[in-house]
């Protein structure tokens, strides 16, 4: 044994660092066994409810100051072991906790209000319920408003007014297509072949009427 026996009964953390080939002291062995037992119980789910800084979970310590430091180290190590085990997926929930979560999920699925059994679940279930009903509420409200708008438009829409029966307006005769007798008059025999002159007269007269009618309509025939 390379290091002295003064390691027994005092804090080995504050003592000199032992050489690699040194034999462990009795105190070190007792502490190692107690710590191994504590880790085993933690991994088996039987960890102590709380480990105070001055409580090493049953680990043998010597002296109050040394005990406090070793307790802190042991607690950190046990927590690290627990986290490692949880991260590997080896943790299982208790049966009561499992059944509680499953029941809450089923109640949520069928739309029943959740039974608040645990302080952690209650707020989560209530928030989920609001999120589930909020879109439906908005959609229902929008649909109701749209239906009301349609009804309002339908009721307030003016009834189709049938075209008013209109009579042909009394327009000047010069605006109408009509026989040319009054314009041309009797055709003398010597002018029987003067159709060119007559068509000029007819065209000029009808053009006057067409222009009058066009201008009366603001330039649109």
């Amino acid at each position: 044994m390379a290091h002295s026996d003064n390691h027994d009964g005092e804090d080995f953390l504050s003592g000199p660092v032992p050489l690699p080939d040194d034999e462990p002291t009795a105190a070190e062995l007792a502490h190692a066994r107690a710590f191994a037992s504590l880790v085993d119980r933690a991994l088996a789910g039987r960890a102590p409810a709380a480990m105070s800084a001055d409580d090493g979970g049953g680990l043998p310590h010597a002296g109050s100051g040394a005990e406090w430091r070793r307790g802190s180290i042991d607690r950190a190590l046990v927590e690290a072991a627990t986290v490692i085990r949880a991260a590997t997926g080896g943790l299982e929930l208790p049966a009561a906790r499992k059944s509680s979560l499953v029941e809450a999920a089923l109640r949520q699925a069928i739309g029943e209000p959740p039974v608040v059994t645990a302080a952690r679940i209650a707020p989560v279930v209530a928030l989920s319920s609001r999120r589930r009903w909020l879109p439906w509420s908005i959609a229902a409200t929008s649909t109701a408003i749209a239906a009301a708008a349609i009804v309002a438009l339908w009721v307030r829409a003016p009834r189709p007014v049938p075209p008013m029966p209109t009579a042909a307006a009394a327009v000047p005769a010069s605006w109408t297509s009509r026989p040319s007798d009054a314009l041309i008059g009797p055709i003398a025999r010597e002018h029987a072949g003067d159709a060119s002159a007559r068509i000029d007269t007819i065209f000029a007269d009808r053009l006057d009427g067409y222009r009058e009618r066009t201008y009366a309509h603001g330039g649109r025939p």
Partner: peptide, 12 residues
């Protein structure tokens, strides 16, 4: 709804 009535024989 209303339209200007025009005789059918209007010069067009």
């Amino acid at each position: 709804i209303t339209r200007v009535a025009e005789p059918a024989d209007a010069i067009d």
